[in-house]
Computed example of a mutant assay.
Amino acid sequence: MSKDKENEDLKKDYWPLVELFSIIFALGLIFYIWEIYPDTLQEIDKQNTPITVPFNQKYSDDLPYDEKKSYAQKIGEKYGTYGDTYGSLNTLFSGWAFALLLISLFMQRRELQEQRKELAAQRDEITKANEIAESQRNISKQQSELLAQQSFYSLLFKLLDEKNNKINLFYFKDSYNNLEYEKYECFKFFSNYILHNMNNFNIQDSGSMNYFEYKEDLKEFILLSYTTPHSQSKNLFEGNLYFEHLINILIFIEQKSNPKDIDSDIAFLKSYISHDELVCLAVLGLKDKRFHRYIEKYGLLEHFDNGLYEHQFFLLQILYKPNAFMTFNSPKAA
């Protein structure tokens, strides 16, 4: 603590005592003057020779005016002068009363200043308390958002693990070639079969059709490339509800993801889908309207290899809107 600060604190501590003793001294001085004032006047009066008039003296016209006055008149004038003298004392008291009034006003002003300081300090404390409360609310909100985010990603990873578990249960038996496929090999078989058939689709045949007829013919052709080997084999490719589970993951991200993070969450999900899975999803979207909507909404065909499969990519562009092949950008995030 600095020396000036210490001196200021000392003044604050001793100033009320100084004011109290000043008031007591002023009142005592007034009382003392009031007490000694009459005696002082009497002492002054004794120093002057009083004027006496015999009781039986007769006044004549030749006497001076003062000598013609009666004794009672002289006594009245004498003590009337005392009264007039007390008038000057009243003026003194009035001055002291005015001085006390000024002192009281000064004290009130100091009290008001102190009250203002206290109110200002209280406002500062309230402001600081509000700032602390707002900070605590922000911290609580951030903690809540962090916990919700942690909970979201924890569930998302569990859903992705379950997706892999379902793939590990895949089994496909190609009765035509007498071959068996398991796990990711099932996706690879269907992907190669579908892409090969799409490559053999002749665009020139569309000359005699309108656009709608051509689109429906292409859709049936691609679905046939999937359903033919699927129907002729004993397999569990769709039996374990893999594709239904993938729709549930998309619904979970759509409903539970933070609007600011949904773009990255969708991109994260896409990184878990292989190209062979992507080809199968493109075909399943032609069968399932829900899947078709999600493919176009979230751009699930973004990573389709249009360089290696240029012809197949051209055919899929006929069946899906451009958004199906683009990076998803959330309107809310934008």
Results as ranks from 00 to 15, higher is better:
Ile222Arg: 01
Glu111Gly: 04
Leu315Ile: 12
Tyr214Trp: 09
Arg116Gly: 04
Tyr193Ala: 13
Asn197Met: 15
Lys183Val: 01
Val18Gln: 12
Ser135Met: 10
Asn178Tyr: 02
Phe221Tyr: 07
Ser257Thr: 01
Lys12Trp: 10
Leu315Val: 12
Thr227Gln: 12
Lys68Arg: 13
Tyr298Asn: 02
Ile33Ser: 04
Ile132Arg: 15
Ala97Pro: 04
Lys166Glu: 06
Gly299Leu: 00
Gln73Lys: 14
Glu8His: 14
Asn235Tyr: 04
Pro64Arg: 00
Leu218Ser: 00
Leu101Ser: 15
Gly76Val: 14
Leu101Tyr: 13
Phe291Met: 15
Lys219Glu: 00
Ser88Lys: 09
Ile36Asn: 14
Lys11Tyr: 15
Glu216Gln: 12
Glu43Thr: 08
Asp9Trp: 01
Ser330Glu: 05
Ile126Glu: 10
Phe304Lys: 04
Gly307Ile: 10
Thr52Trp: 08
Tyr294Ala: 05
Thr85Arg: 13
Lys3Met: 08
Leu160Ile: 09
Ser175Ala: 12
Lys219His: 03
Phe190Ser: 01
Gln143Gly: 06
Asp13Phe: 12
Asp174Phe: 08
Val279Ile: 00
Glu302Ser: 03
Phe201Val: 05
Leu179His: 08
Phe170Asn: 04
Ile126Val: 08
Gly83Thr: 14
Tyr184Ile: 08
Tyr14Ser: 09
Met326Gly: 06
Pro64Cys: 04
Glu118Tyr: 12
Tyr214Asn: 06
Thr227Met: 12
Asp13Arg: 15
Leu195Trp: 02
Ile249Gly: 04
Ser70Tyr: 06
Pro331Phe: 07
Ser140Trp: 02
Glu302Val: 03
Asp174Ala: 09
Glu182Tyr: 15
Leu281Trp: 03
Ser175Asn: 13
Leu112Ala: 09
Leu29Ile: 11
Glu220Ala: 15
Asn168Ser: 11
His303Leu: 02
His292Leu: 14
Gly285Tyr: 03
Asp62Asn: 08
Glu125Ser: 04
Thr227Val: 13
Ser151Arg: 09
Asn138Trp: 07
Asn90Ile: 14
Gln317His: 03
Lys234Asn: 09
Ser104Met: 11
Lys287Trp: 02
Lys183Gln: 05
Tyr153Thr: 00
Lys69Ile: 03
Ala97Asn: 13
Leu179Trp: 09
Ile266Phe: 01
Phe98Val: 13
Val279Gly: 00
Ser70His: 06
Ile24Glu: 04
Tyr294Val: 03
His303Phe: 00
Gln122Leu: 13
Ile103Thr: 12
Tyr184Thr: 10
Glu19Tyr: 15
Lys173Trp: 12
Glu67Lys: 05
Tyr211Glu: 14
Asp276Val: 02
Gly83Asp: 15
Ala267Phe: 11
His230Trp: 12
Lys173Cys: 10
His230Lys: 14
Trp34Ser: 14
Leu236Trp: 07
Gly28Leu: 13
Tyr86Asn: 07
